[in-house]
Design a protein around this nucleic acid. Structure first.
Lengths: 193, 193, 193, 193
DNA sequence: TATGAATGAGTCTTCATTCAT
DNA sequence: TATGAATGAAGACTCATTCAT
């Protein structure tokens, strides 16, 4: 169970992420975060040493978030299906957590990021990499550097979500399947054409 | 009398873009821009009313930049070749001008962006859209909403360039061709498989 | 928590008025006001939006000050005595509040004065005007435009106070009575000479 | 004959005085003075060492201006007539040169005034003082400290001119005579009433 | 703990003054 | 001599952080 204090911690955390998506890292003020979290500005300093500390904590937390932890057992499924499930989960995470992506992007370039956080790798990627390697070994996916494949998948996905946020695109089930098929065509080995 | 120096305008412009890529929009200070442009801080105010004005001018300028203006005549070429050339030019632009993309991304979310700039569309996209429509009509490219196709192309491209900047990926000729082929497989209509 | 301190408001107000008398509106700096009020520079901005706002607030407040509010009932007295009492109160106010007159004079010409304040009339004058009208009706005072009479009274008074400030003149009781008698001779109807 | 340079000197001088009346000493900028004088900002520095120097020069010049130099021979006239002529000349000077009074008032309180100028006496006053002494000796004028008499005359006069500038009062011939008669009643010895 | 008033270091911006032409 | 672009010191203002309550 969350204690009263933990609730405040979460409130500050959430306020930081959603405000960054609203006003950007340059518009992010401690007083605004406090207002958004519905507490006093001074209270933040009971939980975090200072602004830099707060933002780095938020960042590290987001980066370590296991977005595939909800996925359940999938190893027994065909590799294509595994890949689709991974993509689907990632897509749904990004749609639902666009704010988090924005915070990460904005903060990574800010002068406030700590050296430790600068070298932090996204946790969630490793799972996907493993599955891609397997698919490549099985001759289903083109033998391409994972960085490139993941750039295609993630770059596409993030751009899509931004378009959705701008209301120029709707991310319904049909669009989701279409987008995946595009990714799949991009990376799969295409036979006897 | 000294004549007003057009070069200074460019120096300020360049300093603003490259500094943003270095320290982020949140770390962007007028004094830093001045130092980077090798002028006095006050001089900036001869050319721009204030910080907000400067950043909006830089943004509007970048947005209106015709990245395909260098491409020459290509209408006589097969549509596939046209698409490749467009992609190639865009790719090379992004590799060479990664700073500009970063500035655009950072500034779009900042509270300093003017209402007029908020609704500004990227000029360069329309050319690509026209060519895609033609390719769809000819049955070469899947009949997919341009927003989605462009998300794939641009999202992938931008993510690649960021990876390249991080030195985890090298964007040589081979990689370039590989990436294009992935894009192409993603959007083309695949026959009798 | 500290409660917002009304005293600070007064301290800022007083510091602004007395400093203007000391260094003029051109020498008036926010940092000086803060030092004079014995607070931090930033604190001023808790109470006033900016320098212009502060000065206009001080001005409007001074203009609306009812300098005759201390005078008590005088309507039952002979009109000559009423006039003397009004003059006396005004004189004593100006001697005691020369700073305020200086602030008003200096600020009225500054480019910081707001349009609303530019058309603001001095509250305290109306009382005097009413009494003068009555005296004219009774045939005691010359039938002269009030603007002129008040120019004589106020112009004389302000000039006197400035001289007193410069230490070339002492405003003791005797001088006060003398000055009033001069005013009185200037405006009263003089009989069978 | 004025040389070309002398014209510029006068232009700067005039621009300084009239601008101060328009925007106050706090709004007085070298660039504005230059524009008003129709020269370049740098040019001012060919004639004056710096802003402080310019303003002090203007001030000293105004103070030493012999406003009674135009008055011609009046010693042979009755003392009352002499006094009237002096008053009249001063009045007309102030109406025509209200800007100069404003400059003097504003500058005297500014932190830019030099110590020498701070103790500078108005030249023109001495003439008036001499005549007043004579009138007192002849038993025509009350034996009152000259500071007080001059406060009445000048304070009244300046206030009148300000009212005239504000368009709440017209300073025509009739008003002029009326005002003088008020001054005269205030200072003359009034007989067997 | 929690508050938000108060602080003052650090920015932005202005404007007197210099200087290349 | 005259110009006005360029400079940078100084002043206005913001906002992270502290602290009295």
């Amino acid at each position: 169970m969350r204690t009263k204090d933990e609730n405040k911690l979460f409130a500050i955390f959430d306020a930081t992420v959603s405000l960054t998506a609203k006003v950007g890292i340059a518009g992010l003020k401690m007083s605004l975060i406090a207002k958004e979290a519905d507490i006093a500005a001074g209270t933040i300093y009971l939980y975090y040493k200072n602004k830099q500390d707060l933002l780095n904590a938020v960042y590290a937390n987001l980066k370590s978030e296991g977005i595939f932890s909800v996925i359940g057992r999938i190893e027994h499924l065909p590799i294509q299906v595994q890949l689709f499930r991974l993509w689907e989960v990632a897509f749904e995470y990004h749609v639902a957590n666009n704010n988090k992506s924005i915070f990460i992007e904005q903060f990574e370039l800010s002068p406030m990021i700590s050296p430790e956080n600068k070298i932090l790798e996204e946790d969630s990627i490793s799972y996907l990499q493993k599955t891609l390697e397997e698919a490549k070994k099985k001759g289903i996916v083109k033998p391409i550097d994972n960085h490139i494949i993941i750039s295609l998948i993630l770059g596409f996905m993030k751009h899509l979500v931004v378009q959705a946020t701008k209301d120029v695109l709707d991310t319904n089930e049909e669009v989701k399947l279409l987008c995946y098929s595009m990714c799949w065509d991009a990376i799969r080995i295409i036979n006897n054409e």
